Deep mutational scan, measured.
Amino acid sequence: TDCSIVSFLARLGCSSCLDYFTTQGLTTIYQIEHYSMDDLASLKIPEQFRHAIWKGILDHRQLHEF
């Protein structure tokens, strides 16, 4: 599957948040998979999107835990 942040955000309906990640040089889900809610806040992601992205990260982690 596509591991880009572009497609990750698109699946979550949060494509408008892409610039918050790319300006930090973040391009793949693996770069953010251990981010906390505070990390997302420090990227200045608007609160209404933060929870959806956080949930997406948690779902991603569960899929990749062996």
Rank of each mutant, 00 (worst) to 15 (best):
T1I: 14
D2I: 02
C3S: 13
C3Q: 11
C3Y: 14
C3R: 09
C3G: 08
C3I: 11
C3N: 12
S4T: 10
S4L: 11
S4I: 02
I5K: 00
I5H: 02
S7G: 10
F8W: 12
F8E: 01
L9W: 00
L9N: 01
L9Y: 01
L9I: 02
A10G: 06
A10W: 04
A10C: 04
A10P: 00
R11E: 11
R11Q: 07
R11S: 08
L12P: 01
L12R: 06
L12T: 09
L12A: 08
L12Q: 08
G13C: 04
G13A: 06
G13N: 13
G13E: 08
C14M: 13
C14Y: 08
C14A: 13
S15I: 10
S15R: 09
S15V: 08
S16D: 13
S16Y: 05
S16T: 08
C17W: 02
C17F: 03
C17M: 12
L18K: 15
L18S: 13
L18Q: 14
L18A: 14
D19E: 13
D19C: 07
Y20A: 12
Y20W: 06
Y20L: 10
F21R: 00
F21P: 00
F21A: 00
T22M: 06
T23G: 14
Q24W: 05
Q24P: 04
Q24G: 07
G25H: 06
L26H: 04
L26R: 02
T27Q: 10
T27P: 01
T27R: 09
T27C: 05
T28F: 09
T28K: 11
I29L: 12
I29Y: 10
I29H: 02
I29D: 03
Y30F: 06
Y30M: 12
Y30Q: 15
Y30V: 11
Y30G: 14
Q31H: 10
Q31L: 02
Q31N: 05
Q31S: 07
Q31F: 02
Q31R: 02
I32R: 00
I32G: 01
E33A: 10
E33G: 08
E33W: 10
E33P: 01
E33V: 13
H34E: 14
H34Q: 10
H34A: 11
H34W: 09
H34F: 06
Y35M: 15
Y35Q: 03
Y35A: 05
Y35R: 02
Y35T: 03
Y35S: 03
S36R: 08
S36F: 03
S36Y: 03
M37R: 11
M37W: 08
M37Y: 10
M37D: 05
D38S: 11
D39G: 04
D39M: 07
D39E: 10
L40Y: 03
L40I: 11
A41N: 12
A41T: 12
A41L: 09
S42T: 14
S42W: 06
S42G: 15
S42I: 15
S42Y: 08
L43H: 03
L43A: 04
L43P: 02
L43Y: 02
L43C: 04
L43Q: 02
L43G: 01
K44R: 13
I45V: 12
I45L: 11
I45F: 03
I45Y: 01
I45E: 02
P46A: 03
P46H: 02
P46V: 00
Q48F: 06
Q48L: 09
Q48A: 12
Q48D: 10
F49I: 04
F49G: 04
F49Y: 14
F49P: 09
R50E: 05
R50K: 08
R50G: 03
H51W: 09
H51T: 14
H51K: 13
H51V: 11
A52T: 11
A52Q: 14
A52S: 13
A52L: 12
A52K: 12
I53E: 01
I53Y: 01
I53A: 00
W54R: 05
W54G: 04
W54S: 09
G56L: 01
G56F: 02
G56C: 02
G56M: 02
G56A: 08
G56I: 01
G56Q: 03
I57P: 00
I57W: 01
I57F: 04
L58N: 10
L58P: 03
D59M: 08
D59E: 14
D59P: 04
H60Q: 12
H60A: 13
R61L: 08
R61W: 06
R61E: 10
R61C: 08
Q62T: 12
Q62H: 13
Q62M: 11
L63V: 10
L63Y: 11
H64G: 11
H64P: 12
H64Q: 15
E65V: 07
E65G: 15
E65I: 06
E65Y: 04
E65P: 07
F66C: 15
F66H: 15
